[in-house]
Structure formats: C-alpha cells, structure tokens
Amino acid sequence: MDEMLGGGVQSMSITEVFGEFRCGKTQLCHTLCVAAQLPKELGGAEGKVAFIDTEGTFRPERIKSIAARFGVDGDACLENISYARALNSEHQIELAEQLGNQLADGSFRLLIVDSIMAGFRVDYSGRGELNERQQKLNQHLSCLTRLSEDYNIAIFLTNQVQSDPGASSLFAATDGRKPVGGHVLAHASATRILLRKGRGEERVAKLQDSPNMPERECVYVIGEGGIKDST
C-alpha cells in the first residue's frame, strides 16, 4: 500500500478511504496509529496521533497487538494517541476546531477521523436537510484542511458507502456503491481509496484519485498484528 501511495499517507492533505461494512477501514486506522509513531527508518513519522472516533470503534487492545508486531511498547503507543469520542456532528466539528492547541507543539503527525460522515448522516436526514448538511460538512473539511497545512500533518478519513442505482458500467469496480458526502467531500480529499473484501482475510485497496500517483490496486491481509502484505 505504501508503494501504491508513493511512499505512504501524504501530509498536508486529506486521504479518504471508503468501503462497505467490515472491509477493514478501522483496522487500517489502528495500524496507522502505530505506524505513525515508528522511527523514520522503519517507515514511520516519529510523531503522535490524534483520533476522533464517531462510531465507538477504537480498541486499545488492538493497538497493543499491532504494537507487539512492530516490537514497540503498547502502553507507550496508547499514551501517544490523543483520543476523543464524538457524540454527534456538532461535537465532531468542535473537537477538530479545538485540536489546534494540541497540534501547535509540533509533536503530532497524523489526525484520523473514523468515520467522517456517520454523525452527519444521523443529524441531517432527508433531502430537506441535505443543503444544510453539506454546508456544515464543507466548513468541517475546510477546518481539517487548514490543520493539515498549518501543522504539516496527514489527515486520514474513513467513509461509508451508499447504493448508487444509477451507476454505469464505468463504475462497476464500486459494485454499485459510492462514497457518501457528495462533491464536497470528493473535492476536499486529495487522495481517495476504495477498500473491498477479497478472499478470506485478504482486502483489496484501489487508488481511485491521487494528485501524483496513477490509478492502481494492491492486496493485503488483516491479521493479529494489523495489516500486512498478502505475500
């Protein structure tokens, strides 16, 4: 996946992964929480991680098992993760706006939001509230983009999918599904990756949009120690 992305998750921009339930989005987040703290010679960023959890999917024990795979202390890894549970979309927006105070010390390298649209989909339902939802989402994404640029950090978002009955054969790779959030989220995300299930524990990641890399796929496995090459 690092090779597909041209070295890894890019800083000073937003990377979005989307896919259906149980395709491995949160597992990728947990792996990144540890990988971002590794020394640079091991592909890490030697920095702390901020994690905004909108669905209650963060698991400290998962961090410890992934840390063990990399040969680092699990408790130390958890201490370097600044975690917050967002209760709704307004709370999610407030948490992002308050992050500037923490990020200012320069020790953070990654901000994860898992997932970006869950709260917005609950708080704004139906076509009558779609315009207001997109305006709020746009403001939130502008804040995240500003944080990434001001503090030179990578922003990693997970996103859900929805059925797209009007999808043509050109989009057959998405299996009739598309990421939620519309054009607002599409324009904000510099890099977009589709995740889907493969055989057994295999997962397939398809790079659909990137500012500097061609469209391509990679296959990886989700194991006890997080994600790893399928070989």
Score class of each variant (00 low, 15 high):
residue 47 G to E: 06
residue 79 E to Y: 04
residue 20 E to L: 07
residue 81 I to K: 01
residue 44 G to N: 01
residue 34 V to S: 00
residue 110 L to N: 00
residue 91 H to K: 07
residue 112 I to N: 00
residue 141 L to M: 15
residue 140 H to V: 12
residue 221 V to D: 13
residue 89 S to Q: 06
residue 123 D to E: 04
residue 209 D to Q: 08
residue 53 D to V: 00
residue 170 L to K: 12
residue 14 I to N: 00
residue 200 G to R: 09
residue 70 F to G: 13
residue 97 E to M: 09
residue 51 F to Y: 14
residue 16 E to Q: 15
residue 215 E to P: 06
residue 177 R to W: 09
residue 207 L to Q: 08
residue 25 K to I: 04
residue 166 G to M: 09
residue 104 A to Y: 07
residue 204 V to Q: 09
residue 63 I to M: 00
residue 216 R to H: 14
residue 205 A to D: 11
residue 57 T to H: 04
residue 102 Q to C: 10
residue 231 T to Y: 12
residue 163 S to G: 06
residue 39 P to R: 10
residue 103 L to F: 09
residue 197 K to W: 07
residue 129 E to D: 05
residue 32 L to Q: 05
residue 213 M to V: 12
residue 42 L to P: 03
residue 14 I to A: 00
residue 119 G to I: 05
residue 192 R to C: 06
residue 140 H to M: 10
residue 131 N to K: 04
residue 95 L to S: 05
residue 133 R to H: 06
residue 206 K to R: 11
residue 170 L to W: 11
residue 53 D to P: 02
residue 179 P to E: 01
residue 197 K to P: 06
residue 118 A to G: 08
residue 32 L to R: 00
residue 196 R to I: 02
residue 171 F to W: 10
residue 120 F to C: 00
residue 114 D to C: 02
residue 81 I to D: 01
residue 32 L to W: 03
residue 182 G to L: 13
residue 86 A to M: 12
residue 201 E to W: 03
residue 209 D to F: 01
residue 71 G to F: 05
residue 78 L to I: 13
residue 82 S to Y: 15
residue 18 F to R: 08
residue 137 L to D: 13
residue 4 M to A: 02
residue 123 D to Y: 04
residue 169 S to T: 03
residue 180 V to N: 02
residue 221 V to Y: 13
residue 178 K to I: 15
residue 20 E to D: 14
residue 106 G to V: 14
residue 43 G to Y: 04
residue 15 T to W: 08
residue 92 Q to W: 14
residue 155 I to F: 03
residue 105 D to K: 04
residue 146 R to N: 12
residue 229 D to K: 13
residue 35 A to R: 13
residue 105 D to F: 05
residue 96 A to N: 12
residue 32 L to K: 00
residue 53 D to T: 00
residue 74 G to V: 10
residue 171 F to V: 11
residue 142 S to T: 11
residue 107 S to H: 04
residue 126 G to T: 14
residue 207 L to F: 05
residue 124 Y to V: 06
residue 77 C to V: 11
residue 216 R to S: 15
residue 54 T to N: 02
residue 172 A to I: 08
residue 120 F to Y: 14
residue 144 L to R: 00
residue 204 V to N: 09
residue 24 G to P: 07
residue 39 P to C: 08
residue 9 V to H: 02
residue 116 I to V: 10
residue 126 G to Y: 13
residue 13 S to M: 12
residue 31 T to V: 04
residue 154 A to Q: 04
residue 67 A to C: 14
residue 209 D to P: 01
residue 220 Y to W: 12
residue 101 N to R: 15
residue 65 S to F: 10
residue 39 P to Y: 01
residue 107 S to I: 13
residue 178 K to C: 11
residue 5 L to D: 11
residue 90 E to N: 09
residue 201 E to Y: 06
residue 46 E to S: 04
residue 223 G to T: 13
residue 10 Q to W: 07
residue 6 G to A: 15
residue 45 A to V: 03
residue 28 L to H: 02
residue 219 V to N: 08
residue 107 S to M: 05
residue 27 Q to A: 12
residue 68 A to N: 15
residue 38 L to W: 00
residue 68 A to L: 15
residue 179 P to H: 03
residue 227 I to C: 10
residue 158 T to V: 12
residue 123 D to Q: 05
residue 173 A to D: 12
